[in-house]
Design a binder for these strands. Structure first.
Lengths: 232, 232
DNA sequence: ACAAAAGTGTTTCCAATACACCCATGG
DNA sequence: CCATGGGTGTATTGGAAACACTTTTGT
C-alpha cells in the first residue's frame, strides 16, 4: 500500500431563504457560490472553502474561509456533513473534501465579494467538480432536520410571524406547509415562544400577526424517537 | 496560513450483539478493539483502521483494513460517521480521522487476530487517543437509526424469532423493548416479513416461535418525517 | 361594509403503546 | 396438567393533519 501526499479541503454549503416579506413572488432557498476565474473549470461555480490549515481543525477552517465570503456573525449554524474522498474527484494532487452545512438567517444581508452570489437551489448553475451532489446532500439533510430538530432558528430572523416562518419552511422543504399546524407542532415541542408583541399589518390590511422567536438558539434534537422510545 | 503535511486515517467502530440465544445472561452490544503492542499508548485499546492509501476512497480503505481483523462477508453494514480533526488528537504528525460505523450480525463468529477481541460497550477498557468518544458517538447514531431505519438487518441472523430480535434491540438500545410492539411497528412499516417456517421450542418448552427476516438487506430510511410530512 | 390576513376550535386519523387473553409445546 | 414462552385482540393515548370558523386590521 502506497501513501502519496494528500491534501484536505473543507467546503461549505451555505443556505439562506431569500425573498421573505418582499411581497414579490415566493421566497426560495439559495446557496452561496463563487465563480471560478481560472482553470480548471473556469467559469463554473464552486462552494466556498479551501485548504485546511496546518494548525486548525475542520470547523475552525470553515469559519476562517467563510469569513472571506460572509460575515461570521451571519452564520447561525454550522455542522459537519459527509466526506468526499474519490481519489479522482479533482484534477491535480489528491484532495479529500469535508463538507459542511451552514445556515444564514433570512434577515441577514451580508456583503459579498464580486465573484460570489446566491443561487436558487432549484436552478443551480454549471458547477465545478463534485460540488453539485454536495449541495443536494446538504439540502436533503436540512430538510430532514427541519422535521425533528429546532434547526429553523438558524434560518429565521430573531422575531418573526408564523406566516413568515411558514414561508421559510416551505422554501427549505420544497412543499407546502400549513401555518396552523406548523405553529402547533413547534409550540407543543416548546421550540418557539410568543414574544408578546405584534407586528404591523401588511399593505393589504389584515390582522396584525403575533411575533414569535425560537426558544433556544442552539441546535437541539426535539423529537429523537420516531418509534421504539424508552418505556414510560 | 501554512499547510503542513497531513495524514488521513480511517477508523471503524464495529458493533456486534453477542450472547444471543446462549441461555446465559442477557446479550450485550460489543465493539471490536485491538490492543496496542507498541508506544505510544502501549497496552491501550484501539479501533481497527489505519492510514488511507493513495488510490482508495474512504470506504474502500475501511473495507481493506477491516479485512485484516474480520472476514469482509461478515460486515453487513458500513457507513461514514464524523471526522475528528483536532490538530493534536494524536502525537507525531498531524492525522485526521474519518470514523465509520460497521455492523456484524449476531450469528457471525469471525476469526480474530490474537491482539483483537470484542468488548462490551457498557464497560470499555482504557482506550487510546480519542477513540472512546468515537465509540460513544457511533453508539448514539446506531441507537437513533434503529428507530427510523431498517438498520437492524445488519445486526440479526438472516432468520430470527421476534424474541431474539427484541434481545438484539434491547442490547443495542440499552433499554427494554416490548416484543409485541416491536413486531407490529416493523411489520407495519414492512421492514420484516414472516418466512412461514417456525423454530423449535427452547429447553423449557413453550410455543415454537415463527421465524421472520428483514424484507430488505439494504439500508433504508423507513420513517423519514417525524413531523411536517408532505401533504397527502 | 368588505377583503385580507391571523389565529382558534374542532374533528379526524393513525401510529404507537399497554395490557389482557389465547395458543402450542416440553416436562 | 401446568409452567413456559409465543402470539393475537383490543383499548387507550397522543401527536399531527385537515378544515371550518372567528378575530382584527386596512381600505
Amino acid at each position: 500500500m502506497t501513501y502519496g501526499s494528500t491534501a484536505h479541503e473543507v467546503l461549505a454549503v451555505v443556505f439562506q431563504v431569500r425573498g421573505v416579506d418582499s411581497g414579490e413572488g415566493q421566497p426560495a432557498l439559495h446557496v452561496l457560490l463563487w465563480q471560478r476565474a481560472l482553470d480548471p473549470e473556469r467559469g463554473r461555480w464552486s462552494l466556498p472553502g479551501g485548504r485546511l490549515g496546518h494548525d486548525e481543525d475542520l470547523t475552525t477552517s470553515v469559519r476562517r474561509q467563510l469569513a472571506e465570503k460572509v460575515d461570521l456573525r451571519e452564520i447561525a449554524h454550522l455542522e459537519q456533513l459527509a466526506v468526499f474522498s474519490d481519489p479522482a474527484r479533482v484534477p491535480g494532487g489528491r484532495t479529500i473534501a469535508s463538507t459542511f452545512l451552514g445556515l444564514v438567517p433570512s434577515a441577514a444581508t451580508p456583503a459579498l465579494p464580486s465573484d460570489t452570489c446566491w443561487h436558487p437551489v432549484s436552478e443551480l448553475p454549471e458547477m465545478a467538480f463534485d460540488h453539485r451532489p454536495m449541495v443536494e446532500h446538504a439540502h436533503t439533510r436540512l430538510a430532514a432536520k427541519l422535521s425533528y430538530t429546532n434547526i429553523g432558528f438558524a434560518l429565521t430572523p430573531t422575531d418573526f410571524a408564523i406566516s413568515t416562518l411558514r414561508d421559510i419552511y416551505c422554501a427549505a422543504l420544497g412543499y407546502q406547509v400549513d401555518a396552523t399546524n406548523l405553529q402547533r407542532v413547534l409550540e407543543r415541542r416548546n421550540v418557539i415562544t410568543r414574544t408578546g408583541s405584534t407586528a404591523r399589518s401588511g399593505r393589504a390590511g389584515g390582522r396584525p400577526p403575533a411575533l414569535y422567536r425560537f426558544t433556544e438558539s442552539r441546535y437541539r434534537v426535539t423529537d429523537e424517537f420516531a418509534a421504539l422510545r424508552p418505556p414510560g
